[in-house]
């Protein structure tokens, strides 16, 4: 069976600043089946994050098609994009971006609550995921009471709580020291495999890049398979 989860076809993105046009992505084409890890590397500013934002529906393409399952992300309106982000995606940012006034448990549970999961179920699932990333003793801690590595592990758990089809990770270990980066990386890959999630990971960490099932180099707006 040759099932495709994500299909990116002839995607082009041009940013216009005043009278200047900057073509960041020229002709991006790739597709991936479910349960795979896709790693995109490239120099800083080459457009890796932009590609992730396009897949996440946070930004509109200039040209081309992005399809997730049988739905065209590139043709979705605001309401559909909200539902798409709620049900289909999990985001992990370079900076954890946890909510300061919420405990680790609440931070993980919030996407489930947004999706309409009852509070008790959401908190149960959040506690389970936090235990899986080794933070069962830190449920009631606020982000400022956690280390950088722990915060990023909370972010990983948060990305998984809604059982998304696709996880978009933008330099998830980019802000961590080597030791913490390895722990986060191992837990991320292990959970993705366990739950059979598709991970699109953007990084310039060469070691991390070697872990992908599909690996690409983004150079001058074009994706090159590695």
């Amino acid at each position: 069976m040759n099932e495709i989860l994500l299909q990116v076809e002839k995607v082009r993105k041009v940013f216009t600043t005043g009278s200047e046009n900057l073509e960041v992505l020229k002709d991006i084409n790739f597709s991936t089946p479910p349960g795979k890890v896709v790693v995109i590397t490239g120099q800083s500013g080459c457009g890796k994050s932009t590609l992730l934002h396009l897949i996440g529906g946070l930004e509109a393409v200039t040209e081309g098609i992005i399809r997730v399952g049988d739905r065209l992300v590139t043709e979705m309106g605001e309401g559909d994009l909200t539902l798409y982000r709620r049900k289909t995606l999990g985001f992990i940012f370079q900076l954890h971006l946890l909510l300061r006034e919420f405990t680790a448990l609440e931070n993980v549970a919030i996407p489930a609550l947004i999706s309409g999961v009852p509070k008790t179920d959401a908190f149960e699932r959040a506690a389970l995921l936090l235990a899986q990333v080794g933070l069962s003793g830190r449920l009631r801690h606020f982000p400022q009471e956690l280390s950088g590595g722990e915060r990023q592990r909370v972010a990983v758990a948060r990305a998984l709580i809604n059982d998304p089809l696709l996880i978009l990770a933008d330099e998830p270990t980019g802000n961590l020291d080597e030791g913490n980066a390895r722990v986060v990386q191992e837990q991320l890959f292990s959970l993705v495999k366990e739950y059979r999630k598709t991970l699109i990971l953007v990084t310039h960490d060469r070691e991390l890049a070697r872990e992908g099932d599909q690996r690409f180099l983004l150079h001058e707006g074009v994706l090159h398979p590695l």
């Binding site: 996440g56 946070l58 605001e78 309401g79 909200t82 539902l83 798409y84 982000r85 709620r86 049900k87 995606l89 985001f91 940012f93 971006l97 909510l99 300061r100 919030i110 996407p111 947004i114 999706s115 948060r158």
Partner: peptide
């Protein structure tokens, strides 16, 4: 602003 942006990226709608 940052937290609202994160919440929106998680699917919190404008109405919410």
């Amino acid at each position: 602003k940052d937290e609202l942006a994160v919440l929106k990226s998680m699917g919190l709608s404008s109405k919410q």
